[in-house]
């Protein structure tokens, strides 16, 4: 989506509405919402596909991404917090542990050129379209 408006509330509303509309559209071999961690959103942009996952508490080096045979595997581990002093938890809602999730990639993506970044607990993976699927101009030569 293009966020042209200068009103940040309008932008947030539009984003939330757009996200609501595409709940569960089956692509990437994802058959609708499942309980697999982490939650993932998939976007299209000009260059290809952008996959975003919420992984709070994970540093970039605690996440491992591998691509093989048109599938993408995400793995990670968030260790439990340790405390040096004795005390107690009033509330404990945050989870710790490990995850592994795999996604089947559609054809036409160049996995070799994929890039990933983890910032503020948000993992972003960008996979560009392969050269073969990009629109191309075919020159027409005049017959001699």
């Amino acid at each position: 989506m293009t966020l042209r408006s200068t009103n940040p509330f309008e932008n947030l509303l539009r984003l939330q509405r757009d996200l609501e509309r595409s709940v569960g559209s089956p692509i990437l071999g994802l058959g609708g919402p499942t309980a697999v961690f982490p939650p993932i959103n998939v976007f299209n942009d000009r260059d290809g596909v952008v996959i975003r996952a919420e992984v709070p508490g994970f540093a970039a080096d605690q996440i491992e991404i591998s691509a093989e045979n048109q599938s993408l595997v995400l793995k990670g581990e968030r260790p439990a917090d340790t405390h040096s002093k004795s005390g107690s938890y009033h509330r404990r809602e945050r989870q710790h542990g490990s995850f592994a999730r795999s996604l089947a990639l559609p054809h036409g993506l160049d996995v070799v050129k994929a890039s990933a970044e983890c910032r503020d607990g948000l993992l972003t993976i960008r996979i560009p379209k392969s050269e073969a699927t990009k629109p191309k101009q075919i020159p027409v030569s005049a017959a001699a």
Binding site: M1, L12, S22, P39, N41, V49, T124
Partner: peptide
């Protein structure tokens, strides 16, 4: 949340919504 991260992206599949 930073909305600038979503510029130029159109959602294709959603499992979670974004908000403050």
């Amino acid at each position: 949340v930073t909305l600038a991260d979503y510029e130029g992206l159109s959602p294709a599949y959603t499992e979670y919504n974004v908000g403050h």
